[in-house]
Design a protein around this nucleic acid. Structure first.
Lengths: 204, 204
DNA sequence: CGTCTATTTGAATGTACTCAAAAGCGGTGG
DNA sequence: CCACCGCTTTTGAGTACATTCAAATAGACG
């Protein structure tokens, strides 16, 4: 099994010796998630934290009217879990599945706790991961509170250009908290604006 | 200086010996923040993480139209900082000030890093704090994406009954992402609903 | 090729906002 | 202690942003 990607991810924040690396990788289980296959369903207990080696996963919430809201996308080199369920042991509030066939390494909660005791550097590693996740969510909250749908879309295209290639408009709309129809209207408006600008450039 | 509250907060997650406690408390600075006084302004570098011993703080964002959006309230026994600015060293995106005269303990970023090296248990403590903060923000994002303003308000009243006593409607509206006028309409609708229910009970 | 889903477009609707004005409330100074 | 001031809350009319529903078109996949 090739652990080079996940080890490189960890090496961004902490240094491990050979024995620690061996111990860590012994706790991982490799899993392929086919397109549309589920990794977690609402109501289940989320027992793993997942490192995405390749592909695209989505975490989403389904409300009582059946509307899906995407909480996060996770592509290559991201960590994803239902952090609420994972931490508290309560039933999951979200679903996680694959938008493209993906490969992940799963680390069970119990083993993570073992790891914290055996190799305290992992406390540091996950402190940093959690801190960065907190920052990401907080900045997203700020944007949702203060920007219009059009501004959020433009922001998204700039912040996550990688996602634009690989994720359908419907999914992006769901992440932005708008309907796919309205995203289509926004894009059409932006196209007209761009056309106008282009014609202006032709005249200049 | 009385450190009992903050030490009790820390003891929820980690155990320290006498020497460690002494070292930790030596790094704290006590500060009183008067009502309306600022602890952090947008554009400044956020150099401290703050433990609120008493009072009420608010963290909020001001957008380009001048609208305030409250990111979080912090009352007794909460930790608050501009985690983005604190972590990255970039200018703060938010303001933090006091809604009531408050007392806080401030821990500077540099000293926190020292602490992580000297007493690794603090990596664990802040890993847990960051993880819980992440959970809180993620659940809030989910609510903002999937619930109407009225549902979010009802949720807020249930989740944070303490805040209802101490925080004005205007501030709560700002936290919920709606105007104070609209919150007033929601409350008026709910009152009428409650009245109707009461009359129904009288008849039963 | 046919089927299924995603995207576009448009009309009618709804949720929440803006602006304005009045009423309520709390603090402060005389 | 009361009167006044400023801020919060309420109420209403008009408006804007985004949704719903429907139908047509375009794309993707087997």
């Amino acid at each position: 099994m090739d652990h080079s990607a996940i080890l490189k991810n960890i090496a961004k924040h902490i240094t491990l010796d050979e024995k620690e690396i061996a111990r860590f990788t012994s706790l991982l289980s490799y899993r392929e998630v086919k397109k549309k296959e589920s990794l977690l369903r609402e109501g289940e207990r989320c027992r793993n934290i997942n490192y995405v080696q390749s592909g695209v996963l989505r975490a989403y919430y389904i409300d009582k009217e059946g509307n899906e809201s995407i909480i996060m996308f996770a592509i290559n080199d991201w960590w994803v879990t239902d952090i609420y369920s994972f931490t508290t042991g309560h039933p999951a509030v979200m679903h996680i599945d694959a938008l493209e066939t993906s490969t992940v390494f799963q680390l069970p909660k119990n083993d993570l706790e073992t790891l914290f005791v055996e190799i305290p550097a992992f406390e540091r590693f996950f402190r940093i991961i959690m801190q960065n996740s907190y920052i990401r969510e907080q900045l997203r909250s700020i944007q949702n509170l203060s920007l219009s749908a059009e501004e959020r879309y433009l922001n998204f295209t700039q912040k996550y250009p990688d996602f634009m290639q690989r994720i359908s408009q419907k999914q992006i709309a769901s992440y932005l908290g708008i309907t796919p129809e309205f995203l289509s209207v926004i894009r059409s408006k932006l196209r007209k604006g761009a056309d106008r600008d282009e014609r202006a450039n032709d005249l200049s």
